[in-house]
C-alpha cells in the first residue's frame, strides 16, 4: 500500500488554520478577562471597608498621591494588605499549577508536598507553646513548610523524584504533622483562637513588613515559573517522551518542585493555611484556557489575584466589624463555582 500522495503534499487547510487561530484568540481573551477581574478585585478591595473610598479616588491616590484620611487608610492598611493578598494568590496558584503538571495528578496542590502541614505544625507550636515569640510566626512557619518539603523529598528520592512516591510520602508526612496539630489543639484548647485564624488563613493586620518578606519569593517564583513553561508542556507528554525530546526529567521535576515549594511556603507562612487557591484556581484556569503552560501560568496567576483579593474583601465586609477568615470565604464561594465549571465542561 502506498501512502496517498495527495496526503503527503497537503498543507494545513485554511479552515484548520482559522480554527487554530480562533482557539488562540479565545485563550488570550480569557486571560484578559482574568486580568480585568484582578484589577477590579484589587480596586474593590482597596475601596471597601469601614470607610468606603470611591474607586476613582483609590486610583488617584495610588497613581497621583493625595492628602486626607483616605491617604492613611489606603497606604497604611488597605493597599499593603491587598498587595499581599494578590501575591499570595499568585504564589499559591502558580505552585498548584506547577505541581499538577509535574505530579501528573489533578489533585496535586501545595498541600501535597507538605507545605501546609509543616507550616501549620510549626506555627501552632509557636502560637500555643511560645506565645511570647509571636512576632517570629512568619519565619517559623516558613521553616516548617520547607522542612516538611525536604522530608518528603528525601523520603521519595530514588534516582529522581517519582510523582507517586511524592504523593504517598506527602500523605504520610502530612498525616504525621496533622496529628501533632490536632494533639496540640486538644491539649491547649483554651489557647486555640490565634491558631485557628492561622489554620483557616487570614490577611488581617498584614502590612508592609509582610509585603517586603513576600515580594522576593513572588518575583523569583514568577520568573522561574514562566521560564519553565515550555518544559512543563514537554513534561505533560510523559517521562519517556520528555526524555526522548531531550529534557532532563529528574532535574526539571526536582527544580520545579523546589520553586513550587518556595512559592507556597512563603505565602502560607504569611497568611496561614489557605488550602483552596492552589488546588482550584489552576483547575478553573485550565478548564478555560487549556493545558498549555505558556498561557496557563499567567492565567492562573491573574485568577489567583482576583480570587484572593475578592475573597478577602468579602471576609472583611460581610460581617463587619467581625472578620471571617479569608479561607472560609474562598471555600464557600469558590467550591460551588468550581463545580459549576466542571459540570459545564463535562457536557
Amino acid at each position: 500500500m502506498e501512502i496517498n500522495n495527495a496526503d503527503l503534499t497537503a498543507v494545513v487547510s485554511n479552515e484548520g488554520l482559522t480554527k487554530l487561530r480562533e482557539r488562540k484568540i479565545w485563550r488570550i481573551w480569557i486571560t484578559f478577562a482574568f486580568l480585568t477581574l484582578a484589577l477590579i478585585s484589587v480596586t474593590v478591595s482597596i475601596s471597601k471597608g469601614a470607610m468606603t473610598i470611591p474607586w476613582r479616588e483609590v486610583w488617584s491616590h495610588l497613581l497621583l498621591g493625595g492628602e486626607g484620611p483616605a491617604r492613611e487608610v489606603i497606604w497604611n492598611i488597605r493597599f499593603p494588605r491587598t498587595l499581599i493578598g494578590a501575591m499570595v494568590g499568585i504564589n499559591l496558584a502558580l505552585a498548584g499549577a506547577i505541581l499538577q503538571g509535574i505530579m501528573k495528578n489533578p489533585l496535586a496542590d501545595p498541600q501535597i508536598i507538605g507545605v501546609n502541614a509543616g507550616a501549620g505544625f510549626f506555627a501552632i507550636i509557636l502560637l500555643i507553646l511560645y506565645p511570647q515569640y509571636n512576632h517570629l510566626l512568619t519565619p517559623v512557619a516558613f521553616a516548617g513548610a520547607v522542612l516538611a518539603c525536604l522530608i518528603i523529598y528525601i523520603l521519595s528520592w530514588k534516582d529522581g523524584i517519582r510523582p507517586i512516591r511524592v504523593i504517598l510520602a506527602g500523605v504520610a508526612v502530612s498525616a504525621f504533622f496533622g496529628a501533632g496539630i490536632t494533639g496540640l489543639l486538644v491539649f491547649y484548647s483554651d489557647r486555640v483562637h490565634g491558631a485557628m485564624m492561622f489554620m483557616a488563613g487570614s490577611l488581617s493586620t498584614r502590612s508592609w513588613p509582610q509585603f517586603e518578606t513576600l515580594l522576593p519569593y513572588t518575583v523569583i517564583g514568577v520568573v522561574l515559573a514562566l521560564c519553565f513553561a515550555r518544559k512543563l508542556n514537554i513534561l505533560l507528554l510523559g517521562d519517556e517522551n520528555a526524555r526522548s525530546l531531550g529534557l532532563h526529567v529528574e532535574w526539571t521535576r526536582l527544580l520545579l518542585t523546589a520553586v513550587a515549594a518556595l512559592l507556597a511556603a512563603s505565602a502560607v507562612a504569611i497568611v496561614g493555611l489557605l488550602g483552596f487557591v492552589g488546588l482550584i484556581v489552576p483547575h478553573a484556569a485550565r478548564l478555560l484556557v487549556g493545558n498549555d503552560y505558556r498561557i496557563l501560568l499567567p492565567a492562573s496567576a491573574l485568577l489567583g489575584i482576583g480570587v484572593v483579593t475578592l475573597s478577602d474583601t468579602l471576609a472583611r465586609v460581610t460581617f463587619a466589624p467581625t472578620e471571617v477568615p479569608v479561607g472560609v470565604v474562598m471555600a464557600v464561594i469558590g467550591a460551588p463555582f468550581f463545580l459549576y465549571l466542571l459540570r459545564r465542561e463535562a457536557r
Partner: peptide, 30 residues
C-alpha cells in the same frame, strides 16, 4: 541526543486538548 535520535513510545499519552500541530511543534524542543 534528541536531535539525532527520536523515539516512538508505546501508548504515548498527552493532555486532552493538545492539537496535532502542538504535538509536532514539541518535536522542535531539542
Amino acid at each position: 541526543l534528541a536531535t539525532r535520535m527520536a523515539v516512538l513510545n508505546q501508548k504515548p499519552r498527552a493532555p486532552e486538548d493538545l492539537t496535532v500541530l502542538d504535538l509536532v511543534e514539541h518535536g522542535r524542543f531539542p
